[in-house]
Amino acid sequence: MIIAVLALQGAFAEHEKMIRSLGADCIELRQAEDLKKHYDGLILPGGESTVQGKLLRELGMFDTIKKQIEDGLPVLATCAGMILLASVIDGQIDGQPDSYFGTLPVRVRRNAYGRQLSSFHAKADVAGIGAVPMTFIRAPYVVEMDKDALASGNGQILAVVNNRIVGVRYKNQFAFAFHPELDPDTRIHQAFLNCVKARTPD
């Protein structure tokens, strides 16, 4: 099993370390040529979503990755990665910039916790996993998930902290507002790898 990690900017090395500790291989996506390599799942790390989206466009990687996600490639997105996937960015005049994939039917608020709580820790339940430590760094949160996505069973709210949605799943996409790669608990990454394995032919 090979997991690709977007390595243009942000906290990608920590994801790679955790994935390898769980027995999977990693490759880094840094240029369009890398998208020709085989990989079974994708991680979109934290960082600066605006910068990442712009680089994806400039490097000619955006459309290929978006199509891969739409075609069912399992993806784990954390913090900025959640914003990259979101269909609507709260407060954005046009709803969702063209440098964001828009494949996840949620409305996300960026840098949502303000200066006082720009970085904090919590422990809360993630559906199907249990209570996990959560590290938030200038984190977004999900204002709402599309009602049709929820009603269809394809969308699921996975985690809530202080009455704010911080984890969701939609089909093949897992998105979290926090940084599971910064804590020693490996269960979120393991659950992602289990999903990838279930979709990967032997």
Rank of each mutant, 00 (worst) to 15 (best):
A32W: 03
A80M: 01
I43H: 08
T64F: 10
P97R: 01
M82F: 05
A80Y: 01
I137A: 01
D148E: 15
L73N: 09
F120H: 01
I43T: 04
H121D: 15
P74T: 10
L35R: 08
P140G: 04
R110P: 00
R109M: 04
V106G: 10
V106Y: 08
E70S: 10
T64C: 11
R30C: 06
V132G: 11
T135Q: 13
R107G: 14
A77M: 03
D34Y: 05
A151N: 11
S49W: 00
S99H: 15
L76H: 11
T78C: 06
G72R: 03
S118T: 09
A32D: 05
A122G: 06
M134E: 06
H38Q: 15
L55W: 01
T103Y: 08
S49T: 02
L158I: 13
A151V: 12
R115F: 05
V142C: 08
D34N: 06
Q116A: 10
I129V: 11
E48T: 00
G128M: 07
I69A: 09
F62K: 05
R107A: 14
D40S: 04
R109F: 03
K54L: 15
D98F: 13
G72F: 01
F136L: 00
A149Y: 09
G91H: 01
P74I: 10
V168T: 10
L59A: 03
L59M: 04
L158T: 13
R169Y: 14
G46N: 03
A124M: 12
A151H: 11
T50Y: 02
D94N: 15
L35M: 07
K67W: 09
L84Y: 01
R110D: 00
V166G: 08
K67T: 13
G91L: 00
T50R: 01
A112Y: 02
V108S: 00
H38P: 14
I69S: 07
Y113K: 02
K147W: 12
V160Q: 11
Q31A: 14
L73R: 08
S119D: 03
P133K: 05
I43F: 10
F62C: 03
V166Y: 07
G153Y: 09
G114N: 02
Y170N: 12
Y113H: 04
D94F: 15
G60C: 04
F120N: 00
I157E: 06
K66E: 07
V161C: 08
V75D: 04
R110T: 01
I93S: 15
D71K: 05
E144I: 14
V106F: 10
G41C: 05
R169K: 14
S87H: 13
D125M: 15
L35P: 07
Q31D: 13
L76E: 10
V75T: 13
A80S: 02
L42W: 05
D71M: 04
L56W: 02
L150E: 13
T50K: 01
K37W: 12
V166I: 06
T135R: 12
L84G: 03
K66Y: 06
V166M: 08
I65P: 02
H121Q: 15
G128Q: 09
R109H: 05
T50S: 04
G102K: 02
L44T: 04
R107F: 12
A86D: 07
S49I: 01
D90F: 14
L73P: 11
G91S: 02
G47M: 03
F101M: 05
P140S: 04
D148K: 15
P74G: 08
I65K: 00
I43V: 05
N162A: 11
L76C: 11
